[in-house]
Nucleic acid binder design. Structure first.
Lengths: 200, 200
DNA sequence: AACGATGTCCATCATATGATGGAAACAATC
DNA sequence: GATTGTTTCCATCATATGATGGACATCGTT
């Protein structure tokens, strides 16, 4: 039951955000009483943290997958692999994109465990892309650049119901358009610079 | 008074979103009673629409400025001008970035006037960049690409308190990092393709 | 000064929401 | 079958919030 509540909370928090999701909505979605929810998860905030924690763990798994599949591959291909994996994951779990973006806006204490640690994600990607040898040596520029792309992925997916009609494409092609767009923007930028620095 | 309420509402809605901003918060910010607020603006939703309307008008003005300053300038420079103008404007009015992003998530009727019409913005930029001769002829690809950059701008600014410490830069350099990052990503991507197509 | 229009505040209402206590159902162990 | 621990539900509370009605104030016009 605790797990069923978590799953429902994850979906609803993702759809409506923290404030616009009531404990009663979640309870009704699972067909239980509100007090049962509180029995298992304590207060609303605790349930929310449970959701964030689970999502965080999932994302870290995906990054490890990126790292595994990027070994002995050149930069352009590494970027493509990273985009493909993250897009596939997020399109399959679109509530994750929403949850992360909602997190930006929460006026909570951003030092808490509650927060999804974006910095960690960014650094992980940078290292997986071999833009730097270790997490400590990732430059501000590279982090900012990865961040920009990470934003784009999240926004394309969190705002899919908004942007898809605007682009006038069906759901399946939309995935393709998003991937192509990201690759189009990202790959030339990074590979061009790397080639230039290698020439010297 | 009506204007003072609007200004306060704009700031607070931008900080907290629609649901987490109460009419009492706004009233207290302007040092008036809640009923005075309702007297001037009707229900909360109407006030919110007032804010969105004002912001929308402001943004359209900026796009016209972009268009003016982009005449008789080559593509790379046009892109830089657009990024500079929009970044300067949004860094000066960061609540605008928040309001637009909050709009993505609102579960409202997205056909209403309430919505900030992103599609219109995107098309306007594409035409100003001379990626297409008329608004009707802007391709899906170009719209998606502009959209991706537009996302990045908004996220960098809406999430500035989140990302700036993460990048470990001071407020002033942060603006520079954001602009540089956007240009780094955007300019090569678009100019490379244009050059390629012009070569043939 | 009288009057009406406009603006502002106080008191109040109805509702939604987070949360809890206690009773009842259920399950496991002896 | 009794006992104990766990889970679920019903009833209820305290509070926050959107919203309104009516009284008072302010100001310009006559």
């Amino acid at each position: 039951m605790k797990a069923r509540i978590l799953a429902s909370a994850r979906r609803l928090f993702g759809e409506n955000g923290f404030s616009d999701t009531t404990t009663r909505m979640i309870a009704r979605d699972v067909s239980i009483d509100v007090s049962t929810l509180h029995y298992h998860w304590g207060e609303k905030q605790d349930l929310y943290e449970g959701v964030i924690g689970a999502v965080h763990a999932e994302i870290m798994e995906r990054f490890q997958e990126v790292e595994r599949r990027c070994r002995d591959v050149d930069l352009a291909r590494r970027l493509e692999i990273a985009i493909d994996i993250m897009c596939d994951y997020l399109f399959e779990h679109p509530e994750v994109a929403n949850l992360i973006l909602f997190g930006y806006f929460r006026k909570a204490d951003h030092t808490a465990v509650l927060d999804i640690n974006i910095s960690q994600y960014i650094t992980n990607i940078a290292v997986a892309m071999e833009l730097a040898p270790t997490p400590e040596t990732v430059s501000v520029r590279d982090r900012a650049r990865i961040l920009a792309v990470w934003h784009s992925v999240l926004n394309f997916i969190a705002g899919r119901n908004y942007f898809r009609p605007m682009l006038d494409v069906a759901p399946v092609p939309y995935v393709r358009v998003v991937k192509e767009t990201l690759k189009f923007i990202l790959v030339p930028a990074f590979t061009a610079e790397t080639q230039a620095s290698r020439k010297s």
